[in-house]
Amino acid sequence: MLSVRGLESGYGRARVLFGVSLDVEPGQLVCVMGRNGVGKTTLLNTIMGVIPATAGTVTFEGRDVTRLKPHERVRLGMGYVPQGHETFPQLSVLGNLLVTLEASPHRDESAIDEALEIFPRLKPLLKRRAGFLSGGQQQQLAIARALVTRPKLLILDEPTEGIQPSIILEIEEAIERLHTSGLAVLLVEQYVDLALRMADRFLILDAGHVVHSGSADELRGEEVHRLLAV
């Protein structure tokens, strides 16, 4: 479904990614792990086209999307929830959902109900300004906003970072639910145990290289903990 080959990118002269390759098969949950500053967010940003790739290719459903703009990739079915539970703070919760729905190819309003089904906590908040929600609610809104475009692949960047523990659980359950319903997920996650519970496959980044990859069972080895230790 998503196939990344030899991807390189960076900021100005500072190169961050060195030939990263990865695959996400339909329905699979792939987890990207690694310490801070190894290029996880840069990898996702390059896959979405927020940062241009300097080399390598990104293929989505057999189509080369390496040169497409971010909004064109969204229209093809790639949904991206960036780090830091961002919202459009002055729009209402409903406005946040409508604005991506209206930009999506299907424009089917029942997609909002489907997203609220996953995050029922947002239902009583629809009229509230998004900027006034708690961090956890904002993160749920951010994921819901990606879901209303009905993505085929959901890309999540540390969805549980800086969120109160009670809501972390809800978000984890929601991702699990989406995964079991057949949605492919590419997830960046710092918590090893969370990754272990959910991922079908994982890869570990270090200094812009993939240093380890495999199935979830292999993640339990000593080697992995050494690579992830701070």
Binding site: H71, V74, P82, E86, F88, P89, V99, R145
Partner: peptide, 19 residues
């Protein structure tokens, strides 16, 4: 609404699928 979204967070709007 799209205009407001771009004004408030341009990068997020692009990631949300807005041209």
């Amino acid at each position: 609404r799209r205009m407001q979204a771009v004004m408030q967070n341009r990068r997020l709007a692009a990631i949300g699928g807005i041209n």
